[in-house]
Design a protein around this nucleic acid. Structure first.
Lengths: 343, 343
DNA sequence: CGAATGTATCGAATCGGTTCGACTGTTTTC
DNA sequence: GAAAACAGTCGAACCGATTCGATACATTCG
């Protein structure tokens, strides 16, 4: 691409840049035949106005924020996004979304492009590995671009809106314990994820607080998708003698819980009669299902609201470096995928 | 916001713009104490580099496309998006998404902002009313910004990737007719939507080709959401004597079909024994459900692929004004929400 | 017919950064 | 101890558009 500029068009049409500019912006001060000539030149050269070179103007006056997510297919993000949009739109901001699909390099690239595109601020669901390189986040700090995270990052002072995952997950496990379950496992999320680690920790805490033994095989590595829940579910419950089966499972999230329930259905294991299942997130789509999933209700809309409020305040006050941590309440909703163990 | 500029920072720190620039871009040619001073000035003034003023550089070399959707919450878009992403990412492009939530004014604003942010091209699911003002689309043409539509627009020559909605919807209705159903209704989508109109037309065509009478009350105005399907379903089937109930329903999309199925469940009407239900889209989430929905399988990934291929070709060839219409195959998948009428 | 008015176009300044050659000191080298 | 190398900083040009006062020519009016 040779990057055609306005001057090239002007040359070609035998006019000045100002005239070309007038034509493109549809001002009615150009003579018809001149306009024609300019259009021809534009089309022949396939000229595209640079957009970012339009200074004093659009760039700074256009209000927009970016939302970086980890996965396109998980409705969780759509729901948080809905909350974000509500506040953003009410304040005249547009919300642009981009997903890293779990790839860290992509997250970096996204943040970089967002910050070059003159967005007013960013809300990020960060990918975290143990050795995470935070250069792109520091770049935001350097450029004073306000941002809010939806998951904590070790060693980074920043604004964070999240729930208390340990506490919430522990409640989920306690629910099963209180129902009388004695053999419980946890279908855990991706090992590197902060949320997943905390939810595992929550289960462990529930056990210890209830004076039950927690053994490593109570944690089953699964993942965060429906497919993962389904496949691991089939594998796990398919290979276990009936009397060794757990009677209760807490899952990393609703998607894995739904996958597990499908597996159980196919294996002819009844929920909740033979196995109780607890999810996490309380996705809106749960409402679509015949069997109502007991789950942890994460205040997704509210997370979106709060994150956006903080972000906008940061943007509009010009105090982009403040940092504020918000921890929202997540509580268990008891529906009918859980019951006391049979027999 | 007073819009602090680099010159302000330079002044405040008692250095030149070039030095400030060097500091911000982390060049290691600046003396430590100078760097300090500049940082102080930056923070005190809450200076944010303009981003769009960074010419020759980022703007033109960053590869990115935009995707404008109508609704955040419909998984349909996530699936098309997945297709788009696959092709885009393979070619080094990032995909930014923004939803108009069905509001036309917002669609215009989105397109405008996208075109000011120097994206290489756009894929748009346009909102269409009868009197639609296409000025934002023409603006794209004027600026030679390549775009592809995922729904036809009357009176606009442009690249379009879509399925044959009339044909596909007619197949859905014929499926019920062939099973022997004689009393069929169509749960229709939003009246102004092009897709909805075509799907109604498809049902009408199926009837006439099967020599059945089509009467206006076979079309029930419903909408495009799960909630709409649920509420209208409750209302419609709740108020009808058993012998006047239709035995088959084709729905505008899967979401309304799922809503309807929930309503039927609550009314104690069995699917497919008492009522057959056909959806449209074949969302991936259908797989999560115990009852497999018979539906029209829209090649969502492929639509994303094709649209993106066309877009990228347009972008990279510099022939931004070509137009190409692609109509993909959508076929019925027969699962178990449909059966011959009982009795 | 000369002055006033109007129309179409141009040229130059501008926007907020980046880049790069030039200009000081300071340190190294022989 | 003078020449060469090196650091650190500056100033000016530049990127690709927009804006606006200046200009040139045509038309209208008194």
């Amino acid at each position: 691409m040779k990057d055609v500029t306005m001057a090239d068009v002007a040359d070609r049409a035998g006019v000045s840049k100002s005239t070309v500019s007038a034509v493109i912006n549809d001002k009615d001060i150009v003579r018809d035949d001149t306009r024609e000539r300019v259009w021809e030149a534009i089309n022949e050269l396939d000229y595209r106005p640079s957009g970012s070179a339009r200074r004093g103007f659009s760039a700074s006056s256009e209000k927009s924020i970016g939302f970086v997510i980890k996965e396109t297919r998980n409705p969780y993000y759509s729901e948080v996004l809905t909350g974000i949009r509500e506040v953003a739109a009410a304040n005249g901001y547009l919300t642009f979304v981009c997903s890293s699909e779990g790839r860290f390099e992509e997250e970096k690239e996204i943040v970089k492009q967002f910050s070059n595109k003159d967005l007013s601020g960013l809300i990020i669901t960060p990918i975290l590995k143990d050795d995470t390189d935070l250069s792109h986040i520091f770049e935001l700090k350097r450029k004073n671009i306000p941002f809010v995270l939806l998951e904590g990052v070790k060693g980074l002072r920043a604004s964070i809106v999240d729930i208390d995952n340990v506490q919430a997950s522990s409640e989920a496990a306690k629910h099963l314990i209180e129902l009388g379950h004695e053999h419980i496992v946890h279908f855990a999320g991706p090992a590197y994820s902060d949320h997943s680690q905390k939810r595992v920790e929550g289960v462990r805490r529930a056990f210890s607080e209830s004076h039950l033994a927690y053994t490593p095989d109570m944690k089953v590595e699964v993942g965060d998708s429906f497919e993962a829940g389904y496949e691991r579910g089939l594998e796990y419950f398919g290979s276990l003698p009936v009397d060794e089966r757990p009677t209760g499972v807490t899952c990393y999230n609703d998607l894995t819980a739904l996958g597990l329930m499908k597996a159980l259905r196919e294996l002819g294991i009844a929920v909740p009669d033979e196995v109780s299942v607890v999810g996490f997130d309380d996705l809106d789509i749960l409402e679509y299902f015949p069997v109502a999933l007991t789950t942890v209700q994460v205040p997704k809309y509210e997370m979106g609201h709060r994150a956006t409020e903080i972000l906008l305040q940061r943007i509009e006050s010009g105090r982009s470096q403040m940092s504020e941590q918000v921890s929202l309440e997540a509580e268990l909703v008891n529906r009918n995928s859980t019951a006391p163990p049979s027999g």
